Simulated assay, not measured.
Amino acid sequence: MKKLILLACIATISFASSCKNDKKETTEETTTTVEEPVVETKKEEVKKIKIKLDAKSESNVNGSAVFTEQNGTVKMVAVMDGLTPGDHAIHVHEKADCSSADGKSTGGHWNPTAQPHGKWGATEGYHKGDIGNFKADENGNGTITFETDQWCIGCGDPNKDIVGKAIIVHQGIDDFTTQPTGAAGGRVSCGGIIQ
């Protein structure tokens, strides 16, 4: 009989202890914090230069050009007035020096890779400054938009960096053949690409 009572006591104590542990487990709240991974998106730096184009060679051609670099591409938008109606050439020249009256202080076409003059993208070769031709309307207003990944703004690469160069607008058209200028005629407007 003592054994039975002892067993009953042990069973009661075990049951009570078990219930107490169950109760303790159910009343304790567990808080788990799951942290979301932080995804950093790197903003691509946008570089921008706006230049003024001034009349040269006794012309009335003025305007501006904006160069914007983003995602490895440089976009140029040039807007001019005072042109004669028709087609005109526009090039990047070697130096940002527009001090001479005829614009020749800018030197020749920018050609860091020593290629022959030609149409942009030609397999026979072209200067990095050979932008091409654009049309002026009957009022003498002209606009050209040009994009390339072969230029950069202030990157320091002598084969790509347009800073320190100049934009020259010519009186005539670029024939893409005549060396080394394309026979584009006088320099009627100039703007140094300076940061």
Rank of each mutant, 00 (worst) to 15 (best):
L7H: 09
S14K: 06
F15C: 13
F15W: 06
F15Q: 04
A16R: 09
S17T: 15
N21R: 13
D22T: 12
D22K: 12
K23M: 12
T26K: 15
E29C: 14
T32M: 13
V34P: 05
V34S: 10
T41R: 13
E45S: 12
E58G: 00
V61P: 05
V66G: 06
G72C: 11
T73V: 15
A78W: 07
A78S: 12
V79Y: 02
D87K: 02
D87S: 10
H93L: 04
A96S: 09
A96H: 01
T106M: 12
W110H: 04
N111I: 02
A114P: 03
P116S: 12
P116E: 01
K119L: 12
A122H: 03
E124I: 06
D130W: 04
D130C: 12
N133F: 02
F134M: 11
A136M: 03
D137S: 08
G140C: 10
N141Q: 09
T145I: 04
T148S: 11
D149Y: 02
Q150D: 13
C152G: 09
G154D: 00
C155Y: 02
G156C: 08
N159G: 13
I162D: 02
A166H: 05
A166N: 07
I167P: 03
V169H: 08
Q171R: 12
G172M: 02
D175C: 13
T177P: 00
T178Y: 05
T181L: 08
T181H: 12
G182P: 06
G182V: 03
G185Y: 02
G186Q: 09
V188N: 01
Q195Y: 07
Q195D: 11
